[in-house]
Design a binder for these strands. Structure first.
Lengths: 252, 252
DNA sequence: CTACAAGCTTGATATGAATCAATCTGGGTA
DNA sequence: TACCCAGATTGATTCATATCAAGCTTGTAG
């Protein structure tokens, strides 16, 4: 799959965590400068995926966790009868595949929502490295634990909150995650379709659409297709009084 | 908190993983016989909790993960405005607190549903040990990953399935978990109140009650208070066509 | 430039489960 | 023993959101 055409090309395939702009969000976060080489040694530069491409498929052999470098990814589970549940959206610096560490096969399918590049961390090598680097192990525990918390928040959202509250929570989560990535937290493009939002939040597409227009009429947001502007973040927080500012509904 | 009355008593406080009947479900599962001593060295025997006692409270300093020895535990998150979301039920051999590894404080409250005893794994020591024992580290990753998957299954259940389907899924999950513990998978006592079930599954208590009686009228189950007998497991699976036999909605 | 399809919005109606309101039951206790 | 109270059940009504059914927009391939 990777174009390992010649030995000469292979250095280009290696990612440089040293120079990566995401090093304060991604795994390097937990690694000392002088140990960063060890992390670089195990990272594989993944290919570029176009919108709609699958990064990996549910039930195929589990090889690597992926860190999003650029673009955006959605993960979803598909059941026997074909119904889909979107389980998360991932932005640059976030690690995809933590739910698959328990088996031989991927527990979900990961799909690029836009043109996306990734870094791959082969699981055996990653486990070896975390054994050797307690800090990194600790960080992995943290990431996984946060993903559990995120799922619990999502479950809470799904079982206790109205359509408006769920959508407000999602917008706020995206907002803070974009902001942490030094992008605007008030004006951004939704990487996902309305139907993905609906599926993720357990709503019908029509409901999502209606809530968006309702928010727009109330002057809380402005939307134009996938472009969103949060005009009144406080009102948005007001819609969703329970929203824990620290824990977005999907993993960071 | 622990009654460390005299030096003489302290050996009694130490758990013996060697002789524990849950060793094939709990952490010892991942540890070689000859290394079990190292695990025993870090385990603390917890006290006995009565029904309703808190094993730990949300936002208090995070010290240990707890393995249920006997009894049953429910975990829940409580938001500022006081609303509760039950996030899981834990049976003997299951590890409570994995969602709290990411912070200084417990992310949820754990409450004994009946008379319960536990083993405590202090987190610093556990991390040290998993660094030293790749097998154990691997197992921790597995457990956490499964908990993520479980949460995703729960989210799916909440967003896609009807009240009947959710309850069927819970009963089937409990059934298979009891069975793995060598108890009857067809006749057991629900450790939790109807209101806990309702909260966990995002339903009103009344709805839970109604579904139970409907199932009973259909001859699928028989209930008497908290006692449940699954009379027709196949029908129960039929109610819930999507139910993944391998992954119960709450962590194992 | 046009046309088509996919995605999005809007409106009308149906419905599953919440809510409100009693009543019942059983286990613990005075 | 009888009482009490929390938990559980049952019934009547309401409501938020799904579903069904058109239109509308937009990006893109020809």
């Amino acid at each position: 799959m990777d174009r390992a055409i010649s030995v000469k090309l292979s250095p280009a395939l290696k990612a440089s965590c040293h120079t990566c702009s995401l090093s304060n969000l991604c795994l390097p976060l937990a690694v000392e400068e002088n140990q960063l080489d060890q992390l670089e040694d195990i990272v594989e530069q993944g290919r570029i995926y176009d919108r709609g491409d699958h990064l990996f498929d549910q039930d195929t052999p589990f090889r690597s966790c992926l860190a999003v470098r650029s673009g955006a990814v959605k993960t979803s589970i598909i059941t026997e009868n074909g119904s889909e549940q979107v389980t998360g959206f991932f932005l640059p610096g976030e690690l995809v595949g933590l739910d698959s560490l328990s088996g031989e096969r991927y527990a979900c399918t990961a799909k690029a929502l836009e043109r996306t590049s990734v870094c791959k961390f082969p699981i055996e090598k990653l486990e070896e490295l975390t054994s050797a680097m307690p800090e990194l192990q600790h960080h992995m525990y943290q990431l996984m634990s946060r993903e559990i918390q995120g799922s619990h928040q999502l479950a809470m959202l799904l079982s206790k909150n109205s359509a408006e509250e769920r959508i407000a929570a999602l917008l706020l989560s995206l907002s803070s995650r974009f902001q942490r990535r030094r992008m605007s937290g008030t004006k951004f493009n939704l990487p996902m379709a309305r139907s993905d939002i609906a599926n993720f939040l357990g709503l019908a597409v029509e409901t999502v659409s209606r809530v968006f227009t309702r928010f727009q009429n109330q002057g809380i947001i402005r939307t134009q297709g996938r472009e969103v502007e949060l005009l009144d973040i406080e009102s948005l927080r007001g819609v969703m009084p329970d929203f824990d500012r620290q824990s977005p509904p999907s993993p960071r």
